[in-house]
Simulated scan of single mutants.
Amino acid sequence: MTATVPRVIDLRKEPIEDALDRVERTLQVRLDQATVVRKRRSIGARTDRDTWVRIERRGLDRIGSQGGDGTASAEALHGVTKPAWYGSMAWRDTDEPVMWRADETALLPGQPVGSAIVSEDPGLLDAWWAALNASLGALAAQHTYRVATPDTEAITQELVTRTIGNVFAGVDTLVHQWTPAHADLNWANVTAPEFCLFDWEDWGLAPRGLDAATLWAASLAVPALADRVRQERRCDLESRDGKLMLLFASAKILGPHAHPEDPRLTPARAVAEQTVRELQSA
C-alpha cells in the first residue's frame, strides 16, 4: 500500500544504488562513483561527459505550486552567476508520496566555500563580494510567480509572523516587499575563489533580505565575516523587511530547538534585540 506521508530520511544513510542506476539509464550518463556527494536530501556526482548531476528526494507535500523544477526554471534568470542547466528527469516513488528529480548542469568553477555554517573566515576577495552583490541585485530584479521554499517550506506572511512571534514579542511582522530570492544562500552553495551560486531548488519570491539574512546567520560564528555580510548587503538588511528577515533568521537560531553550544547564539541575540528596538521605534 502506498504511504500517505513520506518518511523523513537521510540520504547519507540510505541505499541509493537504485536511484543512481535509474538516472544513468535515463540521462545516458555514467556517474563517477568517486565523486558522489551525499547530503541529507540530495545526492550529486560528476558524469563521464564533464557535467554534474544532482538528485533530490522531496515529498509531494513539499512541492506545491513550484512543481519541483527550481534548477530548470532558474535557467531563465539573467545576470545571475550560476551553473548552466542542460536537462532533467523526474519520477514518482512507487512506495511513498515522494518525487525524485535529477538535474544535469555544468560543473562548478570552483569548490564550495565550506559547509553551510562556517567556523573560520574563508578569506574572500573583494571581487568575490562584488560578484555576489551583482548576482543578488540581478536576481531581485527578475519576475516570477514561484514562492521560495527555505527549508522546503513555502515562505508566506503567516510563516514569517509565526516564526518571529515565537521568539520576539511586540513586532509588527507585516512584509511590504517580496522579491526573488535563492532561499538557500549558505556557504555550501557558493564557490570560491570564483563566485558561483548553485542549488536553485528553492528559489522564488520571498521577503526582501531573506538571502542576505540567511548568509549572515550562517556566518555568525565568525564575527568579522558576519559583519562583512551585513556591510555588503546593507541595501537589503537596513530596509524594514530586511530587519524582519534578520529576526526571521535569528529566530531559527534562538528558538525552541536552539543548541546550547551553538556559537551563533550570543551574536544572534545581540543583533536581534537591537533590531527589535529599531522596528518598535520606527
Rank of each mutant, 00 (worst) to 15 (best):
H257K: 04
T191Y: 10
G87H: 10
D199E: 13
V276K: 11
A131S: 15
V222P: 09
G255T: 05
W216P: 15
G79P: 00
E201Q: 15
L197G: 01
W100P: 04
L254F: 11
Q280H: 04
L107I: 04
T71V: 13
I155A: 00
R22K: 11
T191G: 07
I164Q: 13
T266V: 12
S73E: 15
L279Q: 13
T2M: 13
W200Q: 03
T81I: 13
E24I: 03
W203S: 03
S88A: 14
R25G: 11
M89W: 02
P150E: 04
G209I: 00
V5A: 12
L20M: 07
Q142Y: 01
W91G: 07
E24N: 06
K82C: 02
Q33I: 08
Q142F: 01
H259F: 04
G165D: 02
M1G: 14
T179N: 00
W129G: 03
T2N: 07
A130R: 14
L247N: 06
A206H: 09
L27M: 14
L215R: 11
E232F: 07
V271M: 14
A138N: 14
P83S: 08
R58W: 01
A217R: 14
P260D: 05
S219H: 12
Q66A: 13
V113D: 12
T152P: 00
A258C: 14
G110S: 08
G110P: 00
R101M: 12
E261R: 12
A249Q: 13
V175I: 14
K243Q: 15
E17K: 08
L185N: 05
L185M: 10
Q111E: 12
D93I: 03
L220I: 00
V8G: 04
G64Q: 05
M245S: 05
P263H: 10
S73F: 11
D202Y: 14
T163F: 04
S219V: 06
D211E: 07
A19P: 07
R40N: 05
S219T: 10
T266F: 04
T2A: 10
L197V: 04
T163D: 09
A270V: 10
E24R: 09
A213E: 09
P83G: 06
R146A: 10
P15S: 06
V5N: 08
T81G: 01
R230F: 02
P109R: 04
N166E: 13
K243R: 15
L77P: 14
V80Q: 08
D93S: 11
A140I: 00
V5K: 14
R7S: 13
G165A: 00
D50I: 00
V98I: 11
V229F: 06
V37F: 07
P256V: 01
D103T: 08
A134N: 05
P150I: 06
A169D: 15
R233C: 13
L265K: 15
T163C: 05
S250W: 06
G137Q: 07
G204V: 01
A169W: 09
L125W: 00
H259V: 02
P260L: 07
I63Y: 08
P207C: 06
